[in-house]
Design a protein around this nucleic acid. Structure first.
Length: 599
RNA sequence: GCCUCGGUAGCUCAGUUGGAUAGAGCAACUGCCUUCUAAGCAGUAGGUCAUGGGUUCGAAUCCCGUCCGGGGUACCA
């Protein structure tokens, strides 16, 4: 039982008895006692003063006395100003840790399948004209992690990806291949497919930019130049041909997208993310178009004289939104409407979550309204999991200029650093080469993932490519290392035939401050998982894991475990160690981070 | 212009529904491996929580103004 659940009713009863006052739950403010004071949990009594009509100290004392007399687990109290610090009996903490250790699902809420809601999480959603970069990494890691967190909060989760496989951006790469590609393929160059296509995209922009400059020299405005440059005209022509099903163009499109998918698969695999269902824009945009036309027919939308279709959102305090261009082609929004329709007809979705950058807040605000207007009850309930940008010290990444941190390069560098570091420390000498490689990979990904996920998703973050991501301090490897240490102790324990006991018979007064701190920290895990789910925040889990690992390392430093002579103490320390290891492992799993047995 | 999000130590970030003396890590400096893994532990130093008001027992947190920055407001995605 959670400690708050134990104390809260007692406080309410105390207030009723002492002051004949019944507070709402939110008036009873319980918080963990700060380290500088004695106690485990603290009640803030200021809100009760107007009912007690007494000084804060006296009010606190009266309530404290009542709680000690009426709740077994409350051992003692002390009062500092308006804060009532309660000390909880140590037996409570040991029994909580014991049940955490025994509970296979500790921290998770799991019921039978028919009681679970279905959440669909869309993430990644790449364009197929360039390789994945650090921004995509944040997206993928957040999407994967939030899926794991939702599962731990009793959701059935369908991970989905909408691949933006059609449109003008692909045609730019296709055109570049036709004109300047020299018949290069991944096979004849050995290049990764998505990288090859990405190079072509940059190539296109190089020519495009030069053409614009020339046209502007000839007196055109920037806007006119951008519209009339031969490259863009040709790319548009390719798009028209694609839409009309020109076999040659469609063939090239299929081939180049195929290259890209092969490349993406490698990146996704190394990153450790996957999908249960993949949608392709080329298969959903026509559905969207149909929906928009239906909306037009039913008078939900309107058409301008040039043929373009719009939604009037002024009633919602927004602007007018384009849904179909004057030439009848669809825009981003059109496709998202189609995708949503397909998803909801295919799955019984209770909660739809879009993991998409905050630059698209407006887009999703509009999408929700449009779906609602089109008559879908679920429209309003979609959730845009909006996350901040990854920036370089010099500012935003720009893929058009090739100014990006490439996902594959970054992962490879991380592994190299991890390998070098492990070799210098001589840590993995006892492992086979294969196991060592696997561990470098695990540590490198741990460092990268933790670096990204420990930051509040809502906030922008800065990545400095000049400084490699740390492996010491508040990092993934620090937490992984803690786990490996614990595993090492457990291995040694079983070598010595020291078993984890089912009961702990330690005298409460023999429990040290740090031991108790650790036990308290362990019991917090379920609340952390829940909070992470409610707030869509892997960062909450990440920071918890760090605190837990840090406290364990402090404990480990000056508490002998196996060497401890007093058996009950040894048993408790071993139990704490094992449970911390278990919690670290499942916490890190929620972040998509594996933990090694040795490192 | 309008909408929106943000500004916490030199740097990267935490900071629960408003609570006690604002915390970590990195970088700098100093100690600790004959003992269960030193990718660790302990310590020193580092702050006008952008800024000015307001709300109250109490504000980094809530409200208003100002300054600075990001994003959006496209027949781009």
């Amino acid at each position: 039982m959670k400690i708050e659940k134990l104390i809260q009713p007692g406080v309410i009863a105390a207030l009723k008895k002492l002051y004949d006052f019944e507070p709402g739950d939110n008036l009873v403010q319980l918080q963990n006692t700060r380290k500088d004071f004695i106690g485990d949990i603290t009640l803030v009594v200021f809100p009760f003063l107007k009912y007690s009509k007494k000084r804060p100290e006296d009010t606190a004392t009266e309530i404290g006395k009542y709680l000690v007399e009426n709740i077994n687990e409350v051992k003692s109290y002390n009062v500092v100003k308006g804060f009532l610090n309660l000390e909880i009996d140590n037996n409570y903490w040991t029994s909580e840790v014991l049940s955490a250790w025994r509970d296979e699902y500790f921290g998770k809420i799991v019921t039978s399948e028919d009681q679970q809601e279905l959440a669909m999480v869309e993430y990644s959603s790449p364009n197929t004209n360039k390789p994945l970069h650090l921004g995509h990494i944040r997206n993928n890691l957040l999407g994967f992690s939030i899926s794991e967190i939702l599962k731990a909060n009793n959701y059935q989760v369908v991970k989905t990806n909408i691949v933006n496989d059609r449109g003008i951006h692909i045609c730019k790469s296709m055109l570049a291949w036709q004109k300047w590609g020299n018949k290069e393929t991944p096979e004849n160059t050995g290049k990764k497919g998505d990288h090859l296509v990405g190079e072509l995209y940059v190539e296109f922009n190089k020519h495009f930019k030069a053409e614009i400059a020339e046209l502007m020299n000839n007196g055109l405005s920037q806007k006119e130049a951008e519209d009339q440059a031969p490259s863009i005209q040709e790319a548009r022509e390719l798009l028209r041909k694609w839409e009309s099903g020109d076999p040659e163009v469609v063939e090239l499109w299929k081939t180049m997208n195929g290259w890209v998918y092969k490349g993406f698969d490698i990146t996704y695999k190394r990153l450790g993310v996957d999908f249960d269902k993949i949608y392709y824009e080329s298969e959903t945009y026509l559905v969207g178009k149909k929906e928009v036309l239906r909306g037009l027919k039913e008078g939900i939308f309107y058409q301008k004289e040039d043929g373009s279709v719009w939604a009037d959102l002024t009633g919602e305090g927004l602007d007018h939104k384009l849904l179909l261009r004057s030439d009848g082609t669809s825009v981003y929004m059109t496709q998202d409407i189609g995708t949503a329709k397909m998803r909801f007809s295919e799955f019984n979705i209770d909660k739809m979550i879009y993991v998409v950058g905050n630059e698209q807040n407006y887009h999703f605000q509009v999408l929700a309204i449009l779906l609602d207007k089109l008559g879908y009850a679920w429209g309003k309930s979609l959730h845009h999991f909006s996350y901040g940008m990854v920036e370089l010290p010099s500012g935003k990444m720009k893929s058009r200029e090739g100014k990006v941190v490439d996902a594959d390069d970054l992962m490879e560098e991380m592994v190299q650093v991890a390998r070098k570091m492990a070799e210098e420390l001589g840590k993995l000498d006892s492992l086979s080469e294969e196991e060592a490689e696997r561990t470098y990979e695990m540590i490198a990904m741990g460092a990268l993932k933790y670096f990204i996920l420990k930051v509040d998703p809502k906030k922008n973050m800065v990545f400095n490519p000049e400084e490699s991501i740390d492996f010491n301090g508040n990092t993934g490897p620090f937490i992984q290392y803690t786990h490996a240490r614990i595993k090492s102790v457990l291995r040694k324990a079983s070598e010595k035939n020291i078993e984890l006991k089912k009961e702990i018979n330690i005298l409460p007064e023999e429990i040290s401050f740090k031991e108790k701190e650790l036990m308290k920290r362990i019991t917090l895990f379920p609340a952390v998982v829940k909070e992470a789910g409610t707030n869509y925040s892997p960062a909450v889990v990440a920071n918890y894991c760090f605190e837990l690992a840090k406290e364990f390392n402090q404990f480990y430093h000056d508490h002998p475990i196996l060497a401890e002579r007093n058996e009950p103490t040894r048993d408790l320390r071993l139990l704490i160690s094992a449970t911390v290891g278990k919690v670290i492992k499942s916490g890190m799993k929620l972040l998509g981070i594996e933990v090694p047995e040795r490192m």
